[in-house]
Design a protein around this nucleic acid. Structure first.
Lengths: 154, 154
DNA sequence: CTCCTTATTGCAAATAGTTGCAATAATAAC
DNA sequence: GTTATTATTGCAACTATTTGCAATAAGGAG
């Protein structure tokens, strides 16, 4: 499986501030901001783009001695559930990234593996339709749409 | 994880005929229709709806002595690649079903786990838009859209 | 600063899914 | 039917992910 490149306009974020606010948020919810969790979030703040659980494990274990893989899997799941990370399926792999305030989806080229963001509003019509004609309240999380990018379509 | 129920209008298929035609198709492509593959396809023809690899393994190994799990995983992948089975992600699980001639997607209620089919044509506008404004040739395989069904939305 | 509660971790074992390879058996050709 | 070819299988080992549980330590209260 090829590298998952990533072409994103990056919301500038102050890591210090982000982490401080995150700690407050977790504490107010009764959760704890452990060094392990700090490192994992720190990694996502420093590395641009999507990371698999395996990649997180490698990076994190390189820095700090031994954070167990179970901790990493549990942390990714945890941050996903509380909305700090987003999670999507890409080429059979589960990838995580910092959850932007503006939800977005991904276009993945099956030929060159380029990942392009796709704004959420493109699904507004579909969501409205599902609600009106199917009585279904769609909760669109990060969809991954495969296909060929303009470059590879030729 | 709860049972994945399934509410589908079923294309009536004659299993005998289906299997015979499948054998010819595979042979003409240089593949072989082994007893293992026959059993797996037979299961999908008899069981309505989606099955996970684990469910397939259980059913198949119950009937016939010992078909290895590797064979099952490889067969599911194989049938998916040649278009006999379709594959989609549902609640973190990979599920397979007989690929209908008319592509469709799934609406999954996050509350009661009901699965509803959603016709492919609902994405025509989106696909056209992606092509015109993003130069992206979307290949929509089976999308799974989570949300609340009309029943649970109240 | 110390103590208490309990969320979280690390460990180890279990469950999922994948892969290399020699043995097997489905086809096609004769 | 027999034989040759090679796709496919079973096995076993491996990687990926999950889970139970006792030990640890974060954060609130005093």
């Amino acid at each position: 499986m090829g590298n998952l490149t990533h072409h994103h306009h990056h919301h500038p974020v102050d890591p210090e501030k982000f982490q401080a606010e995150l700690k407050d948020k977790l504490n107010s919810l009764g959760y704890r901001y452990t060094p392990q969790r700090q490192q994992i979030v720190g990694l996502f703040l420093s590395e641009e783009g999507h990371l698999t659980a395996k990649e997180v494990t490698e990076h994190v274990q390189q820095q700090s001695a031994s954070i167990d893989q179970a901790t990493i899997y549990r942390s990714l799941e945890f941050f996903y559930k509380i909305g700090v990370l987003s999670c999507s399926q890409m080429g059979g792999q589960t990838v995580y990234e910092i959850a932007h305030s503006v939800p977005h989806h991904h276009l993945v080229c099956t030929n060159c593996d380029t990942v392009m963001p796709l704004d959420d509003h493109h699904f507004d019509d579909l969501v409205a339709h599902l609600w009106q004609d199917h009585q279904f309240r769609a909760e669109l999380t990060h969809l991954t749409i495969s296909g060929l990018c303009g470059h590879c379509a030729n």
